[in-house]
Structures are given as C-alpha cells and as structure tokens.
Amino acid sequence: MSTLEIKDLHVSIDTEQGTKEILKGVSLTIKTGQTHAIMGPNGSGKSTLASTIAGHPRYNVTGGTITLDGEDVLAMSVDERARAGLFLAMQYPVEVPGVSMTNFLRTAKTAIDGEAPKLRTWTKDVKEAMAKLRIDADFTQRNVNEGFSGGEKKRVEILQLELFKPKFAILDETDSGLDVDALKVVSEGVNRAHAEGNMGTLLITHYTRILRYIKPEFVHVFVDGKVVEEGGPELADRLEEEGYDRYVQGAGTATIAAADAAAQA
C-alpha cells in the first residue's frame, strides 16, 4: 500500500514575459488501488501538475510538497522518480530518433528493476502486451514514437505502463485522439495494470467517455491552477452536462464548492 501526497503545490514557469504562476495551491492524495480523475478546462494546469510530478525541468515548484510514502519526490531527479514508481503517460509523447523501441523498453526496464530482465521471458512479455494493445509486432524495430500516429503513441505509453508496473500512473489525456476501438483497448490496458492491485491512477481527461471504461472513485475539478470541487463519479456526469462555466464565471461558487469538498474530505 503506497500513498502519493501532493500538498499545497505552487508551480510557476519562466516565460518571455516573466514568471507565470500556473498551479496555485494544489492538494491531492492518491493511494494504491484508487483511481482519481482530474477534469478541467484547457489551460487550467492539468498537464503542468502531471509534468511537475514527473519532474520536468521547465516547471519551478515555488511552494508545497510532493511525497511518495513520505519520501520527498521533489528532491529526486526525473529518473529517480520513475524508479521510485511514478509513471507519466504523456499528453504528447516525444519522438526519440535513433533509439529503437526494443532497445528503449529493455533499457528502461533494466533501469527500473535495477537488473536486466531475463531475455526470454521479457521478449515474451513484450510480445503479449503488444498483442493485447493491438500494436503491430514490427513496432519494436522502429524508433521510439518516430512516425507513430497520435493513437499509436498513446497505446505505446500504455504498453510501457503495463511493462514497467509503476506504483502510480498519471495519465495525461491518454484518451484524447483515440477512436472508439482504441479507447477501449487502451482502457483495458489501464484496467489490467490496475487489477494487479499495486497501482494507483491519476487520470486527466476532458471527456467522460473514458470513464465508461475506467471507473474513478474520485473526481477533482481543476480550474485556474486549483482544485475547485471534488466528488464521486456523479460529478463527472454533471460536468459533461453543465461544463465548467459555473466554476469559471462564478468564482465565488467555485470557492464555496471547493470549501464544501474540503469539508467533506
């Protein structure tokens, strides 16, 4: 049983116009076995939260803490975080020229486990995981994400999730750009990883359609760098119907709702 705890997180970035504060005090606790969904309008800071957890150097943490089972995540380098069990499925996975998928997957697995996987079982594991995600076998020969379609990139992110077996998975809009079939295949992948019982999930999404496949226990509404409301799965449905106007326009309502949510928590 592990806990990922984010407390009063403030994050800013350096832009040409100067420093810009993006996260304005985010608090969130995820435990093994739980699935949390984060929903919020464009530009509200969802990817910023995800990237900050993963340790992207662009984001400066100006206040607050992130801990994994009490360990200070912010003190860890990017690779240390991954080895500690954090996994970020990126909204825009990066193409890495010159590095084959096979080589990449084996190198990452070796780094995460601290020892090289046994070649025979590893090859079999990769093959099976790829088949389940309906990724063509010849993808292993291709360079990491190079020339992959949007949907293919997302599947390959989930492939890594299944192979690396993290303690916490942060899925940044993994559902965006997927057709209905792919959405199902990818969701099943996440659910398989979850079913092993050792993972907590933070799912960032704009759409409730993925929530038909992946069931969150908690839904957090994210507006302007803050969680403004928290609730159960029913909150997602309401958001789909009503949108975010309520939070964006009536800042007062949002504050009250957030306070309510905080009181309930």
Binding site: A54, G55, H56, P57, S77, V78, D79, R81, A82, R83, L88, M90, P93, V94, V96, V99, F104, T107, A108, A111, I112, V144, Q160, F164
Partner: peptide
Amino acid sequence: HLFYLMARGIP
C-alpha cells in the same frame, strides 16, 4: 528527448 527517456527511469 532526455526528459522522455529519464521519465522512464533511464539515468
């Protein structure tokens, strides 16, 4: 590139 690879645990 570096971030992507490091985010997968690779030093």
